[in-house]
């Protein structure tokens, strides 16, 4: 990995230091307690895969980390900023500092339809991070090139396939240089033949040392890229560990059932 590699992550944190530590994360929607005290940590350069049945709270975990939902309790600590304890209401400033640590890649891409591919990617760096436009364009172009979309930079999102749109979504997140990338089922809205391209990009990012948390139903993929797999059910972490262990030899009955069902759908 060369120092000018556009896909290279921000390399300030030594490997294996936790980038993120979450403890006791709780979130309810009305009477529905969706997260009941979740503990997680992600180390620099590692990939955390969150798996679990529908409604188990995986998306809600990612959304809490990115400030799209405000937790009811728990502590979220990103390396380098003050931990935020949600026991008392967090200030706007705290929420913003937390939000700026991560960037979300959405299941349905959520690209800006009125902006070109390039404009989508440089919007954050230029408008929010106030970086020089020329530099942002240069970086965006080389990122787009890396994911095979160099020739699409002046097109609008609706002119692209789902797989291409999602790769733009990934590049838009990368361009912010977050310390943690969040992926919420990045391929589940895609036609099967387009899934491979997107997974390939994510795998490359993992290999290049990006730190990420990934919600996925692609167990084979999780086994290949994840450093740790966390199985959630009913708003709690049921089992966690090395992918080979959790996915091939799960200890908990609920994990066994879930993995078995995903591997043998019929």
């Amino acid at each position: 990995m060369s120092p000018t590699d556009p896909l290279a992550p921000r390399g300030t944190v030594p490997a294996h230091e936790p980038v993120l530590t979450v403890s006791g994360l709780r979130k309810s929607f009305g009477a529905n307690q969706v997260l009941k005290s979740i503990d997680l940590s992600v180390r620099q350069g590692e990939v955390l895969a969150l798996i679990g049945p529908s409604g188990s709270g995986k998306t809600t975990v990612l959304r809490c980390l990115n400030g799209l939902e405000t937790p009811d309790g728990g502590v979220v600590a990103f390396r380098g900023i003050r931990p935020v304890d949600f026991a008392s209401p967090a200030s706007k400033k705290q929420l913003a500092s937390l939000r700026d640590q991560s960037a979300m890649v959405f299941q349905h891409y959520n690209l800006f339809p009125h902006k070109t591919v390039l404009e989508n990617v440089i919007e954050g760096p230029v408008q929010v991070q106030k970086r020089p436009k020329a530099e942002a364009v240069r970086e965006a172009s080389s990122l787009l090139d890396r994911v095979g979309l160099a020739d699409k930079r002046d097109q609008y999102p609706h002119e692209l396939s789902g797989g291409q749109q999602q790769r733009v979504g990934i590049v838009r997140a990368l361009a912010l240089k977050p310390s943690l990338l969040l992926f919420d089922e990045p391929t589940s809205a895609l036609d099967p033949e387009l899934v491979g391209d997107v997974l390939h990009v994510i795998k490359e990012l993992a290999e290049e040392g990006w730190t990420m948390a990934l919600v996925t139903h692609e167990l084979a993929f999780a086994r290949e890229v994840a450093s740790e797999v966390v199985f959630m059910d009913g708003g709690v972490v049921v089992e966690r560990g090395h992918p080979d262990q959790v996915l091939r030899d799960p200890q908990e009955e609920r994990t066994q059932q879930f993995v078995h069902r995903l591997l043998n759908p019929f």
Partner: peptide, 16 residues
């Protein structure tokens, strides 16, 4: 709603 969320995730304030 996803457009608001995308704005949020790239660091924009609600007004922006």
């Amino acid at each position: 709603k996803g457009q608001w969320e995308a704005g949020h995730t790239i660091g924009m304030s609600p007004v922006t």
